[in-house]
Computed example of a mutant assay.
Amino acid sequence: MSQRSATYDAKLLRRPFRRWWRETGWRHLVGVGVVVFSVFPLIYVFSASLNPGGTLITANNLFSNFSFDSYVELFNRPQQPYAAWFLNTLFIGLTAAAGSVLLGALAAYAFSRMRFTGRRFGLITLVLVQMFPQLLAMVAIFLLMLGIGEVFPAIGLNSQIGLIMVYLGGALGVNTYLMYGFFNTVPTSIDEAARIDGAGHARIFFTIILPLVSPILAVVALLSLVGTLSEFVIASVLLRDPERQTLAVGLYQFISQETSQNWSIFAAGAVLAAIIPVALFLVLQRYIVSGLVAGSVK
């Protein structure tokens, strides 16, 4: 058996170039092209952050200038507190991601394990509502938060808690449907065995189901965090004080005024802001493929 496998491997090594190119080689070329297409913008932004010129014209020559002055100046602007923006984004993003995971998991568990009137209609409604982005309801959200702020200022306009609640309000649809397919892959016999032992829905959910569906929880948390970090419109409308704004809103100040555009500092801030999603992606990457694919079998 080993001799046959060795002979087969030797034949593969002696494949003609045309056959190798038709079967395998073109895939390597496509892979290299995708890598170059994906990495070049990152290299360009990093090069622009090291260019003290402040304009994109002087940054066209990659790494022609090398200086960390933009990173130093980024934290030395009292009117543009980058450190506060970073911490605000971290707090809002992690809180919104955790809330999205919890609410989505609770809803998915209810739709997957319980049978009640309007179950199918409710699940379809959650998905259909997500067809309309929150941007279409921006005026209604602003007026709603304005009214809430008059009664409860802590969750009204210019409140990070209020912004988190707005994010959570639009996080149920797709997350619930994504988790619903994954929850259906967990055998119901596990729930029945736990009920025989006297466990209720809460104990089954927190101690049995959640550990089994951890891949989809990681995927939803990562997607929610990335979406929160890159969200600009709602955060720019609801957050007024510079000390409470997020990175997406704060970084825009470096390039919003035509007479004081500084692309080097903007690029430096963007590079540092990318640390959060990249670090989480590296930590959670082993869950991403299984979390996205496993729920599609139902």
Rank of each mutant, 00 (worst) to 15 (best):
R240S: 07
P215N: 12
L172Q: 12
L178P: 10
F205D: 08
S159R: 00
L229Q: 11
V237A: 12
N175V: 00
L172A: 13
S189D: 15
F152I: 15
P211Q: 06
E243N: 06
I234F: 02
A248S: 09
L144N: 11
T188K: 14
I216D: 14
R244M: 07
P242V: 14
F183A: 13
G250E: 09
L247F: 01
L143M: 12
F232C: 10
S224L: 06
F206R: 04
A199R: 08
V219L: 13
L222P: 10
D241E: 12
G227P: 11
A154T: 14
M165S: 09
A154E: 14
G181H: 02
Q245V: 06
L163T: 02
V249F: 00
L212G: 04
V249C: 02
I164G: 09
Q253C: 03
G198P: 01
V249L: 00
G250Q: 09
F142G: 10
G170Q: 02
F152Q: 11
T188D: 13
L222F: 14
L229P: 05
Y167E: 10
I196M: 05
G169F: 01
R195N: 07
P211K: 04
E231M: 01
R244A: 07
L239V: 02
N184H: 09
R244G: 04
F142V: 15
I190T: 07
N175T: 15
V226S: 15
G198T: 01
L210C: 07
T207N: 06
L178K: 02
S230Q: 14
T188H: 13
L223P: 12
I190E: 09
G149P: 10
A202H: 09
Q245S: 08
G173T: 10
A194H: 01
N184M: 13
T188L: 12
F205T: 06
L217W: 03
A199L: 08
A248P: 04
I208E: 04
V219D: 11
V186E: 12
G250C: 10
I216V: 15
L212P: 05
S230F: 13
N184C: 10
D191Y: 07
V249A: 03
A193L: 03
Y252T: 08
Y180W: 12
E243A: 07
E243G: 05
Q245W: 00
A221I: 14
V237G: 07
L163W: 00
P215G: 11
V174Y: 15
A218D: 09
R195L: 06
E150F: 09
S189E: 15
Y167G: 04
A193H: 05
G147T: 15
G250R: 01
Y180K: 02
I234C: 03
